[in-house]
Amino acid sequence: MSSIIEVTMSDLKITPKSIYLKRRSFIRNSFFGISSLGFSKLAKFSSLVSESDKPTSYEAITSYNNFYEFGTSKSDPKKNASRLSTNPWSIEVSGLCRSPKTLDMDDIFKLNKIEERIYRLRCVEGWSMVIPWTGFSLRDFLLSFEPEESARYVKFETLYRPEEMIGQTSKILDWPYVEGLRLDEAMHPLSFLSTGIYGESLLNQNGAPLRLVIPWKYGFKSIKSIVKITFERDMPLTSWVKSNPREYGFYSNVNPEVNHPRWSQKTERRIGEWLRRKTLMYNGYGEEVKDLYKNMDLKKWF
């Protein structure tokens, strides 16, 4: 296990800010926000994305969103998210840990070293993107609160503020949005907390100021605009499991073998492409994460 972690960590190299900014402006200034030279340069910085994983345009990443707090249509979040004020912001970390704390964003930036990670994102609706995130490892962050031995799960909650999050005035989900991970999943080196995309601070529609990124799970696990993190003994009841347990499971690992009644899970459309491509087990991160699910029936624990 430790060897897997080491290999993975060395693959996720930190990009120096100056090179990063140069690359970013190159990509964003080129026609359609993309260029083949920019891609191959970017791809080198993370061996976990292949040559065929070209970063999705900033325009698409910030205009095509599922964030039901701002409406259910994918154009709604961009339209409605500007009403939300993310300053001041506080994140309460509590539960089964020895040093619970409430932090603001300044604390977060002081305590954590910001790095870049390019991850594939696969939505349960059968579309995907490649996103250059900035942020920090969830593992190091969680360890700083000294979780107790009895803690087996981590629960995350999104802000509940219906005056500013217009989608919360309709009862489409039981607000606030809740997500969760098994502690060992949260401690996996791929698990990430993000504060930015393409080197820019997160926009509200992408989950500002702090969101989770779990690249081997369907996108809805990567909870946005987090205000509360709790270490728990029992499996948290997450929003989508509560709303439709037949269609959504706690784990929600990307798995082409488990069907969904409305969206194809065998194939996906990469945003910016016309034809669908095959969806990979664990979204292509199987080598890194498969040990987490050893001896588990993935059709039962979907």
Binding site: N259, H260, R262, S264, K266, R269, L275, R276, K278
Partner: peptide, 18 residues
């Protein structure tokens, strides 16, 4: 042309009855 790629209509009916 754009939605069913590597598998056929019948498989898609089974996975997604709608």
């Amino acid at each position: 042309f754009f939605e069913i790629e590597s598998f056929g209509i019948y498989e898609d009916f089974q996975a997604r009855p709608f």
